[in-house]
Design a protein around this nucleic acid. Structure first.
Lengths: 247, 247
DNA sequence: CGAAGGCTTGATAGACCTCAAACACAGTGG
DNA sequence: CCACTGTGTTTGAGGTCTATCAAGCCTTCG
């Protein structure tokens, strides 16, 4: 039930994303293809949307890595999610107009934008598509919950391992990796900000995962060498990702 | 824009909840009132739904405090949300049938249950109600995000203060408190499990909030004595709760 | 080749945890 | 009415995981 193809076409990306959420009929697919998309390109470490802004369009990540994050008064950053091909980091803007967090890029990113107007229209006309969006919000929330558990109650080693497992599953799912080999253009500082750790500690923990040959990591190139062991260390079970279509 | 009344009627609770999310037309209200509800009562520290279960109905909290939580292999618990009157802790079950976390009670709880069938039906017939549910999921997710930030990047004192601020706003909103006085049937262990801290440390931090007279806390009775100061300590800003109806 | 950003390492410090015990309070029962 | 129990709160002491600070190193790239 994986999708092997490697779409570059904006509409295909969105279509595939929604198709992983619900079964789409032909007319629904057509409606999605007819959505007016604007493509925009961002360099590394740029903001796509900023906390406090009122938005009128949603973005779909086509290529590269983005993240949702919040900044604290003391300048510290907490990353809330990593977003790759097909992800909709600001879909919530459709209902909650003013952003309560920011969306930024971690690598060069190509993204497609759809106006809320067009989105509302298609959602109104096609309840199944509304369901897909809603379901997307639900899986988002499920991932947030698991992050809370990790940051709140798991030691650093487990936390890092768990995140790597999660990224593996999600990247596999959209066809951005295979056989445990992935391009992960994420710095150790980014990992630290996602995991609630310091960069130094993330570095040391990564070494603890490399030493017994669970993973291999040069720059942005991640290879998972021992998947079962990594899952065990990360106490990882993928059910919360809900990677099955609606029944 | 607060609701002063104190409903005990199950349908009223649900109606009020949805009314805080979107503006409801008369026929929508009628449809909600017509929903078949089953009332059930739970004692303190009981599970309402358990992780892994496949569910076919959703619950609405009517009275008392519930929480969503997850248990780790080593027995530790992480609380994911506190749920009070009007909250729908397992609404996600409507789309994601198998629970990826548990819902339990922190105090005696009275809850109403609606079948997924009835819920799907009403959602299909009334897009605005679907929107309300979806919006509920979105604000849920927004709260999760802020918890991630707190647990990941804020020191214990700030974390505790922030949570108290959040609870204050939410309880005010549903009319379960006034003038900073609340009944909070939550143990310090519960707080600790929500904040990713130890009970001992929560206890000490609470004293640090009591000493300068920011709060008053005897048993389940919380009084906020210095709201501005508490907000400042907690770095609290309520925008993420999105306590305004859809425009 | 120099600059910049990211990675790595060592030393020190601190926030928070764990363990253990005492205390407070409400409910129970004789 | 008063032990008795159970749960929750409080306090103290010691320990540890992770943070912070400060360099050095490595790779990339103009």
């Amino acid at each position: 039930m994986n999708n092997a193809m490697n779409p570059a076409e904006p509409a295909d990306v969105l279509l595939q994303k929604l198709a992983t959420l619900v079964v789409l009929e032909d007319d629904e697919k057509q409606a999605i293809r007819a959505l007016p998309l604007t493509i925009r390109i961002f360099e590394t470490r740029r903001d796509i949307v900023r906390e406090g802004e009122v938005i009128s369009e949603c973005c779909v990540i086509l290529d590269g890595f983005a993240c949702r994050y919040m900044l604290l008064p003391n300048g510290r950053r907490q990353i809330l999610s990593f977003d790759t091909r097909g992800d909709l980091p600001d879909l919530q803007g459709l209902h909650l107009k003013t952003m309560d967090h920011s969306v930024g890029t971690l690598s060069p990113v190509r993204a497609a934008f759809v106006s809320h107007r067009a989105l509302s229209e298609i959602a109104l006309r096609h309840p199944r598509i509304t369901g897909a969006f809603w379901r997307n919000t639900l899986t988002d929330a499920a991932i947030f919950r698991v992050w809370i558990v990790g940051i709140g109650r798991r030691p650093a080693l487990t936390r890092v391992a768990h995140l790597l497992c999660e990224l593996r599953m999600r990247l596999d799912w959209v066809g951005l990796g295979r056989d445990g080999v992935y391009d992960l253009p994420i710095t150790q500082t980014d990992l630290a900000d996602a995991l609630g750790l310091s960069t130094v500690h993330v570095n040391r923990v990564l070494q603890d995962l490399r030493r017994p040959n669970l993973i291999l990591l040069h720059g942005s190139n991640l290879t998972i060498r021992d998947w079962p062991a990594l899952q065990a260390v990360g106490e990882f079970s993928p059910i919360y990702l809900h990677l099955e279509q609606e029944s």
